[in-house]
Amino acid sequence: MIGLNEGPIDPAAVLAAVADPDHGGTALFVGTTRREAGEREVAELFYEAYEELALAEMQAIAEEAREAYGAKVAVLHRVGAVAVGEPSVAVAASAGHRPAAFAACRHVIDELKARAPIWKQAVRADGAAAWMDGRAVAPVPEAARRPDAR
């Protein structure tokens, strides 16, 4: 399971995707939208991705983990609006033993953040938005925002 989701991520499904009776260790990382980013309260994060390249990079990263750690990997990342408290990304890795499962999971999330063309904006309660690198942007159009985040 490697993908980009417009809807909610079910961490249990990501975890189930790496189940293997030959693997004795499984690690799960779930990244969620937090209320604070910088000095202002966040209403939601808004993710954009270059889908074709992001998926290819996610596959390559999963393959690296398989080769390096003997791991089975699943990773889902949200696109679109993600409300506070909701998962933005979930990574699961199973391997023969606990250290390899932890290492594979860490490798995947770290490389995903470093290499995949997925960008995020913080949308503030007042509708102002900024790329997470600090550049201000126009507010996210009302039609693209989640109804429950308004």
Rank of each mutant, 00 (worst) to 15 (best):
R98N: 07
G31Y: 09
D110C: 09
F29E: 03
E111Y: 02
D20K: 12
A43W: 09
A104M: 04
A144M: 13
G96Q: 15
H23M: 04
V79N: 03
E44Q: 15
V75I: 15
V84M: 09
F102C: 09
P141K: 10
A49Y: 08
G24H: 07
G31I: 03
R124F: 15
V108H: 03
E51Y: 01
A60N: 03
G85E: 10
I2M: 08
A144N: 01
G134P: 03
P147K: 03
A56L: 05
A54L: 05
E36M: 15
A54G: 03
R124I: 05
P21N: 04
R78F: 01
A100I: 01
V82H: 12
R106Q: 13
A143T: 08
E111P: 00
R115I: 06
G70I: 01
V14C: 14
A17P: 07
G3K: 06
V75E: 12
G24C: 08
V18F: 08
A114D: 13
A144Q: 13
R146N: 11
F46L: 10
L4P: 02
D133P: 01
L4V: 06
A37E: 11
A128M: 09
Q121P: 00
V79E: 11
A13L: 15
H97N: 14
P8M: 10
A54I: 04
P139V: 05
E111R: 15
A12S: 14
A100N: 07
A138F: 00
R40T: 13
A19G: 14
A60H: 05
V42W: 10
V82Y: 08
D126E: 05
A128K: 14
I118F: 14
E142A: 13
R145H: 05
P11N: 12
A104E: 06
L53K: 05
A92P: 03
W131H: 15
P11F: 08
A16R: 05
C105K: 00
L112H: 05
